[in-house]
Design a protein around this nucleic acid. Sequence first.
DNA 1: TTATATTTGTCCGTATGTATA
DNA 2: CTATACATACGGACAAATATA
Lengths: 253, 253
Amino acid sequence: MDAVPLLRISRPHRLSEEVGAVLEKHIRSGEFGPGEKLPAEARLAEQFAVSRAVVREAIARLKADGLLESRQGSGVYVAQCLGAGVFRMAAGVRGEAHPIEDIFELRLIIEVAAAERAALRRTPADVEAIEAALARMDEAVALSADGVRADDDFHCAIASASGNPLIGRFVAFVSHEFSASRAPTWSREGIVRGLAGAAQDEHRAVHAAIVAGDPAAARRAARQHLLRAARRLGVVLAAPPGARGEDMDEETS
Amino acid sequence: MDAVPLLRISRPHRLSEEVGAVLEKHIRSGEFGPGEKLPAEARLAEQFAVSRAVVREAIARLKADGLLESRQGSGVYVAQCLGAGVFRMAAGVRGEAHPIEDIFELRLIIEVAAAERAALRRTPADVEAIEAALARMDEAVALSADGVRADDDFHCAIASASGNPLIGRFVAFVSHEFSASRAPTWSREGIVRGLAGAAQDEHRAVHAAIVAGDPAAARRAARQHLLRAARRLGVVLAAPPGARGEDMDEETS
DNA sequence: TTATATTTGTCCGTATGTATA
DNA sequence: CTATACATACGGACAAATATA
């Protein structure tokens, strides 16, 4: 019976998010330069016509994003280096998403390198985790169940086996951004059409190379898996590097 | 005149940060599973012996980090995928920093690939930006001034020339985390000792390869620059991949 | 469908510790 | 040292959305 909530233009849902978005815009546009002091919370509150609690929550988010710093008794200041220490897929909170090709290329770069290093440094525990994910995907294929989660875990386990926690965490980060697009492979139709089975064959090749401790084979297997996964998804990678065999890295210094 | 506030949680500086750190620990340890509902704000407030505003600010930070979601009238819930969309160098706010070797290895992986793609896809504007940074570093060497910023910009310009905005933004992110450790090269002693000059020679090699459109040469030059930069900093990379020439990527399918 | 309780979102007022002039 | 400005923290209160009976 209430009137339609159309008139709340600047109020999608969260007031603090609105304030935060406006402040972020002002900061990124340089209106508030690095190191510069923001107006007092009370000032901002009356300027935005909201309470100080709302302003404080907006500031809390921007502090978490590394855009602001607050010093008690002094004020709130813009960070010298915006967003240091934080990397977001979508630049702004409401930023546009990156095209799937770009995400895929980044995955290719980092995961191929991760597989190579996993072949060199894997521990028995790493191999165990990789094989556990592999087994769960086998189950998923047999039962026509969802194997996206296990697929994610497989790639993350390999990255973790690289021995570099940063690589492990970054692959986990990128992998999740990608997992939605990986769903078709594990849909019932995907499994019936043999997409999941093909992916499993490629997974096994990567696993074998890592267990064998062959970094070159691990690179090839990981690369082939990702390229074929791209084809299964209909993703065309711009100017596939290495296509003409120029992906050699080192001439022994 | 009041009694000492000993019974509170440890109170180094920010109360909301303390609460946020404790909550984050509980979430990441799985004590609060994905999708699970947290106790009400009022409940948490009395449990931590703080006001609700403090709890709300802590929750605001965790929401910004993608660990929590709040629904008005319902409650606060743990995100299904923790930290989706956000990558931090230091996992928690109080998390330990990653060793310089790990950061360096990730840089090596991503920047070598970026240089290769820059050689394939660079635009005239990209080349302009790269050369501008190069010129500013020349100035810095001549004047014994600080060239860290220009050095940062050089690497970021190359990554941007890769044509993949994701790579550009990620290199900018990693590069900044690293720039502090790069300072010695551009200190007055570093310049006098010729460290900066050596780095410039390597920079020029990368630039030449990119301008020439030679991806393999770009890879080699970028790799050599980063490896030598590591040696200048005294960083030893564990099991340098490609040292035995096994970094080939593709056998043309 | 209606009514009620719960919970988050928002606002106000106040007190305290800190930094700065 | 004093005074002012400010962030931090506390408590109470109501509105709005949700969940439940």
